[in-house]
């Protein structure tokens, strides 16, 4: 029986820490569900939770995720097993199996401009069902959407995302779920975390409450319901370097 982290009837300190990704997802997964995932490319993706979803075999998933991973890493592993029904993404290059399934009609794809996707997540998490943006006006993105003028400029209505589950990756968590991210691995993890009914976070290290600087928390624990700690592969997609002598 997994611990229900955010409603502890005893009123004792919240217990959000789980032993593994599979345990942390226990009771949360169902076929046809909508998952928001953090990450940009392969940077800051919830790789342990994605592995556990693959093992769980949950099907017909819709993912709101900026990218779709590569063939054998990230969401790509769930494409290999045909667990994904639909992707809501801004960019899906670098993934041959994705393209094969998309071109054969097996996989639905909804392109969102990157900032629109991020704001849809942020808005959903903030209880905002829709917002107007200039992004995409006059393009295919605007087709079928409400247009409205403000101060002489035209905007389109975009809807907030409300996901069944959010899966994110952070650098450190304290035991109450306050999260700190590292460098550009923060990316979509913050807005994605907020727009799920339940958020599960995987981190490199869980530290005792009180050890993180309260002024330096990137995402308060109120948004984070379950936490796991684990070793991360953190794969690099484009390894670019310069030579020492050219410095």
């Amino acid at each position: 029986m997994p611990r229900v982290a955010h409603t502890d009837p005893e009123g004792e300190r919240m217990k959000k820490i789980y032993g593994s990704a599979a345990e942390a997802l226990d009771g949360l997964l169902f076929d046809g569900m909508f998952i928001a995932a953090g990450g940009f490319g392969l940077c800051g993706i919830p790789e342990l939770l994605l592995d556990a979803i693959k093992d769980a075999g949950t099907k017909d998933l819709t993912f709101a995720s900026n990218n779709a991973g590569v063939d054998e890493f990230g969401i790509g592993i769930l494409l290999q097993t045909k667990q994904v029904k639909k992707m809501i993404s801004s960019y899906v290059g670098e993934n041959a199996e994705f393209m094969r399934q998309y071109l054969s009609g097996e996989l639905e794809l909804e392109f969102n401009p990157q900032g629109t996707l991020a704001e849809r997540m942020r808005a959903g998490g903030a209880g905002i069902p829709g917002f107007y943006t200039k992004t995409g006006v006059g393009t295919v993105i605007a087709e079928g959407k409400e247009h409205k003028d403000f101060n002489g400029q035209t905007y389109i209505l975009e809807e907030g995302i409300f996901a069944d589950l959010a899966i994110v990756k952070a650098w450190k968590a304290d035991t109450t779920g306050n999260l700190i991210f590292r460098k550009t691995a923060r990316n979509f993890n913050v807005p994605a975390a907020t727009c799920g009914k339940i958020c599960v976070a995987e981190v490199e290290e869980i530290v005792p409450a009180g050890t993180l600087d309260p002024d330096a928390i990137h995402l308060p624990g109120i948004y984070v319901h379950r936490i796991i700690e684990g070793a991360h592969e953190k794969r690099i997609e484009q390894r670019t370097t310069r030579k020492k002598e050219s410095a």
Binding site: T184, I236, Q238, T241, R242, K243
Partner: peptide
């Protein structure tokens, strides 16, 4: 746009950081 102001040059060989990339996914 993946979340950084003040982007620096490519790292020296061996100093790549998987958590530090640009929008083209380059270290």
């Amino acid at each position: 746009e993946n979340g950084m102001l003040g982007m620096g040059p490519f790292p020296f060989e061996g100093e790549e950081d998987a958590d530090l990339i640009n929008a083209g996914k380059q270290t």
